[in-house]
């Protein structure tokens, strides 16, 4: 009886994770695409060490950060993928979403300040373990995107 309850609980979590996770991801991607289009006019440029600096009035540091987690269904499917190896596509979308969201937040912050270009952008990613209790790999990632806005 106890085992049955546990299995039922597991299945419910799986179904909940699958549907809600998909719904949230779709919504998130929609918002990312919309905001990316809106901020397209501000270029992000990386400079080499020998390049002379461009002539601008003001420069300031901007950063955007996000902590994003994977849903239960994907966590289990990634665990299965771990058995056979290969590309873990479910994690790819998580990292993609995180990085784009962090970049967008940085960009929006810089635009609010009045930047017309963002220079030398760097990305920093770290994993912050799964939910407390279970130790099933990285459950969530944190991304920091930072760069210099100029105007």
């Amino acid at each position: 009886m106890d085992a049955l309850v546990q299995i039922l609980f597991f299945v419910v979590l799986l179904i909940l994770g699958y549907f809600w996770g998909r719904y949230f991801e779709k919504r998130h991607y929609k918002s990312i695409l919309r905001r990316e289009k809106k901020t397209l006019n501000i270029p992000i440029v990386n400079f080499g060490a020998k390049q002379s600096l461009i002539d601008v009035q003001e420069a300031a540091l901007f950063a955007g950060s996000v902590v994003i987690s994977i849903d239960y269904f994907k966590m289990i499917s990634a665990a299965f993928r771990n058995l056979v190896g290969g590309r873990v596509t479910v994690y790819e979308s998580l990292l993609d979403r995180g990085r784009r969201e962090a970049l967008l937040r940085m960009k929006e912050d810089a635009i609010k300040w009045g930047a017309n270009q963002i220079l030398n952008v760097r990305l920093e990613t770290a994993t912050i373990g799964g939910s407390s209790g279970n130790n099933s790999g990285p459950g969530s990632i944190e991304v920091i995107a930072y760069g210099t806005g100029v105007k």
């Binding site: 994770g17 809600w20 996770g21 991801e25 994003i68 987690s69 239960y72």
Partner: peptide, 17 residues
Amino acid sequence: SFKNIVGGELKGYTELL
């Protein structure tokens, strides 16, 4: 850990970060 079931942004952690 609740949010880990459905996925998405963890707002509390983002603020902390």
